[in-house]
Amino acid sequence: MATGGRRGAAAAPLLVAVAALLLGAAGHLYPGEVCPGMDIRNNLTRLHELENCSVIEGHLQILLMFKTRPEDFRDLSFPKLIMITDYLLLFRVYGLESLKDLFPNLTVIRGSRLFFNYALVIFEMVHLKELGLYNLMNITRGSVRIEKNNELCYLATIDWSRILDSVEDNYIVLNKDDNEECGDICPGTAKGKTNCPATVINGQFVERCWTHSHCQKVCPTICKSHGCTAEGLCCHSECLGNCSQPDDPTKCVACRNFYLDGRCVETCPPPYYHFQDWRCVNFSFCQDLHHKCKNSRRQGCHQYVIHNNKCIPECPSGYTMNSSNLLCTPCLGPCPKVCHLLEGEKTIDSVTSAQELRGCTVINGSLIINIRGGNNLAAELEANLGLIEEISGYLKIRRSYALVSLSFFRKLRLIRGETLEIGNYSFYALDNQNLRQLWDWSKHNLTITQGKLFFHYNPKLCLSEIHKMEEVSGTKGRQERNDIALKTNGDQASCENELLKFSYIRTSFDKI
């Protein structure tokens, strides 16, 4: 039985969820670079991206490699990797027998973001014989899940209580170790020597080791999670996991709180800001991140802002960003909400898709409305799209047979046209069989910064309504002859009103 693990408890099935942008060198404390989270699957090609990484700022997932063999891993080693800020997950990587050479110096898994409450997941690794993470000293947050690894031993010899604050939620089941077939031998045991430290858990006094050649490092209890030197002297209180010299914040392997210019500090002093819960960055760093993602459509890219001495992905609820200094300031009234469309555009074809934009005031991208039916549609669209004030790209209304009016965009005031449909149009209306009105132009103002209007096959939309939009939106004169079809717009509506004058002759039985 794995020490510190839980057996036999019912657990939810383990679901495996399925960018080499360097964020800056980590400095003297770390020998390499800070790398983003990685999802490495199918083959070993991307694994080489770990070569210079000291910190993975995010998670590391290595999974679904069915053609790899043990010899493929023999020359692979990433000794610079010290810390993973989120979680480490391995799933069905064939041929991998140990992690001792792959990650010989991995010391800390912070667990800032977890995989279903777990910071370390080893699942269905069919050839893994031992973990071998002999320098792993601290899992700051989260638990361990090690399950269905039929060859995995050296679990009962690990004292997880020396690595985690609590072992109650560890789930370590259905491994070879369960069948008591392992016969784990710690260093020196074969020669009758006791080389590794022994600890007591559940009444068992057991030597602690990761492999037959690597003991588990056990520091004096007084050192807590700070770690200790090879001689057993406690590291500085700002260290986490390990250090090369005692009581020196510049000799830590990793930091308990924050890293700044080669030393570990309790908090980031001005003019620095907390970033990702582990390091200090200056304003320029946060500003660069903001600008890199301002026009990016890459998933996970955030326009970072500053709030409460932190550089964070977005302002919290009730705050909006001051564009001059990136500071989050309290909103006066309802907060603006910028919604970034991942692929640059979004099609609204149902109430469900409209709900995804609920509360958005600025759309960074283009909207395509293609709704053919739905219950209580006008009210639903207004509830979900009615706060949109600005669209950076274009607005396209296409084959939306259920629409009679666009009044559900009740606050839309600006279409920038930074991206144009077919390279020309910022407003595009095609084949809307029941569209009769755009907006009530006596109450609604709309500016279209650039781009043209396109109207074709809107049989109940009168040309007068379209011409009014040209005047109000500032697009009059931009359109070419064929942009607004004269014969297919309003051709099934009563669009022309003329005053009919009647004269009559009164007659009676005795007068003409």
Rank of each mutant, 00 (worst) to 15 (best):
C215G: 09
L60R: 00
T229I: 09
C223R: 02
S237E: 14
N150I: 12
H302C: 05
K176V: 08
D165K: 15
S143Y: 02
G203C: 06
D86Q: 12
M83Q: 06
T194R: 09
N105I: 02
G95H: 15
L106A: 00
C153N: 02
H48M: 01
E151G: 10
V200L: 04
V173L: 15
E207Y: 05
V121D: 00
V218N: 07
G183M: 06
E180H: 00
M38Q: 14
D261H: 15
V206I: 05
H214I: 05
P246A: 13
C301Y: 09
N195S: 08
L164C: 06
I158P: 05
T189Q: 08
R256D: 07
C315E: 03
T320N: 09
P79A: 08
H212M: 01
I201E: 13
C234M: 04
W278S: 08
P271G: 15
L326P: 11
G183A: 09
D184T: 04
F66S: 08
M83R: 00
L289A: 09
E314C: 04
Q287T: 12
F103T: 01
D177V: 04
I312S: 10
S143Q: 11
P31G: 15
Y30C: 05
I306W: 06
C311A: 05
C228D: 07
K129C: 10
P70I: 07
H48I: 06
N42K: 12
C235V: 00
E57C: 03
M65I: 03
P336Y: 06
K67Q: 01
I158M: 10
N150D: 04
C301Q: 06
W210Y: 13
D165Y: 14
N322K: 03
P70Q: 13
N175Y: 05
T45L: 13
I201L: 13
S324V: 13
H307F: 08
C280W: 00
V200I: 10
E231S: 11
A230K: 14
F73K: 04
R110A: 06
H28A: 07
H236M: 03
N117R: 06
D247V: 08
E180N: 08
F103H: 00
L64D: 15
H28I: 06
P197F: 04
V34P: 07
N325E: 11
G241I: 02
P249K: 03
A156S: 07
D261R: 09
H48T: 11
T107R: 03
N43L: 04
P270R: 07
G58N: 00
K217E: 15
G333N: 04
E314Y: 04
M65E: 13
E130N: 10
R69D: 01
G203P: 05
P220Y: 08
L44A: 12
P336A: 04
G232R: 04
S225W: 15
H307Y: 08
N105E: 06
V218E: 11
P269G: 11
P271D: 02
N52P: 14
L50I: 06
R256S: 07
V265M: 07
T250N: 10
V206K: 06
R145F: 08
V305G: 07
T45C: 03
T85N: 03
F73V: 06
Q245E: 12
L102H: 00
Q276L: 09
S112D: 15
K129G: 05
D184N: 08
Q276F: 12
E147R: 02
N42V: 07
